[in-house]
Computed example of a mutant assay.
Amino acid sequence: MFSQRRFRAMLLGGMSVALGLSSTLVAAADAPTTSNRLLLTGGVSQIEGAAGGGLTPWAVIAGYGTRDEIGATAFATRVNVQDYHLNDVGAAVGFYDRVELSVAQQRFNTEDVGAALGLGRGFTFKQTVVGVKVRLFGDAVLEQDSWLPQVSIGAQYKKNDQDAVVKFVGAKRSQGTDYYISATKLILSQSVLLNATVRLTKANQTGILGFGGDKRNSYQPMFEGSVAYLLSRNVAIGAEYRQKPNNLGIAKEDDWADLFIAWAPTKHVSLTVAYADLGNIVIKDKQRGLYASVQVGF
């Protein structure tokens, strides 16, 4: 069972990465000021480390730094569904609202399914994700007199630690890179945020089960979308959808969706809770449950 002590240790580890990186970068950049953006306009931490929603990246840059500032975030996430759970920690640094660098480590626990598959109860896949995102044009918040969204491109390199296992189930590789383009627009007059992302990917279950498979081994465009409504300046509710490839013959993969609420009492802390529907994962269907994430930063 996941302990509070372990969760705190994961969170503190992520905070140390973010704060260490940001301290070095701030010193190197002649100590710019930070934290002038509106609450929640940097999104929360996506499961692969990028700024966005819980399931999908947005075009926004991590942290609250403006075009003259550096911002940083760190997060810890727990996803509990019927037959599996995911522990996820990471950090991101945003440079001058233009470039974002991120890192995340995912630990996917198979619980009793691992025993049924002959891997052992609680068998865990560990995946490291390193990401980069660059804002191309637009400003999701400031350009309210224009319908032009903020548009960013990004890449996420992923490396799985179970090469033999993922190849046994039909994956071609245990590492790979996703590429995406995101468009995000906040309509302040309606208190609505809209995001659309197109991802080119070979990943099976975001890479937890490797990349490519016996059914297909080519990049496919997948749609990801988010909509959020700002109930107040520090509370947002919304929904997300993430289309998934289906590369493995023995492990059907379904699209993902969630309903979420995010609360940011200050610019330094945000809490996100969601009900997630992840569909079929390996031999277990209807994987639904709770997503919870804590983010700290500036």
Results as ranks from 00 to 15, higher is better:
residue 40 L to W: 07
residue 76 A to L: 00
residue 69 E to Q: 14
residue 66 T to K: 07
residue 43 G to E: 08
residue 31 A to R: 15
residue 29 A to Y: 14
residue 37 R to D: 11
residue 76 A to W: 03
residue 44 V to H: 04
residue 38 L to P: 09
residue 32 P to Q: 14
residue 27 A to K: 15
residue 49 G to L: 02
residue 40 L to D: 08
residue 54 G to N: 07
residue 74 A to L: 00
residue 31 A to N: 15
residue 78 R to G: 03
residue 46 Q to I: 01
residue 68 D to N: 12
residue 57 P to Q: 06
residue 35 S to M: 12
residue 63 G to E: 10
residue 42 G to C: 05
residue 48 E to P: 01
residue 80 N to Q: 14
residue 80 N to K: 13
residue 51 A to Q: 11
residue 73 T to K: 01
residue 59 A to D: 10
residue 60 V to N: 13
residue 63 G to R: 08
residue 76 A to I: 02
residue 72 A to F: 01
residue 45 S to C: 07
residue 50 A to P: 02
residue 59 A to G: 14
residue 69 E to R: 08
residue 54 G to K: 02
residue 35 S to E: 13
residue 40 L to E: 08
residue 70 I to K: 12
residue 52 G to F: 02
residue 54 G to I: 03
residue 56 T to C: 02
residue 77 T to Q: 09
residue 39 L to N: 10
residue 45 S to L: 04
residue 53 G to F: 01
residue 31 A to E: 15
residue 30 D to R: 15
residue 71 G to T: 09
residue 51 A to S: 14
residue 55 L to A: 04
residue 70 I to F: 11
residue 60 V to D: 12
residue 30 D to G: 15
residue 72 A to G: 10
residue 79 V to I: 10
residue 35 S to R: 13
residue 66 T to V: 00
residue 33 T to L: 12
residue 46 Q to F: 01
residue 70 I to R: 12
residue 53 G to R: 01
residue 56 T to Q: 05
residue 43 G to S: 09
residue 49 G to E: 03
residue 50 A to M: 06
residue 51 A to Y: 08
residue 30 D to F: 14
residue 68 D to I: 00
residue 38 L to F: 09
residue 79 V to E: 04
residue 44 V to A: 08
residue 61 I to K: 12
residue 73 T to L: 00
residue 34 T to C: 15
residue 55 L to Y: 02
residue 41 T to H: 12
residue 72 A to I: 00
residue 39 L to A: 11
residue 27 A to Q: 15
residue 50 A to I: 01
residue 41 T to P: 07
residue 70 I to T: 11
residue 52 G to C: 05
residue 28 A to G: 15
residue 55 L to P: 01
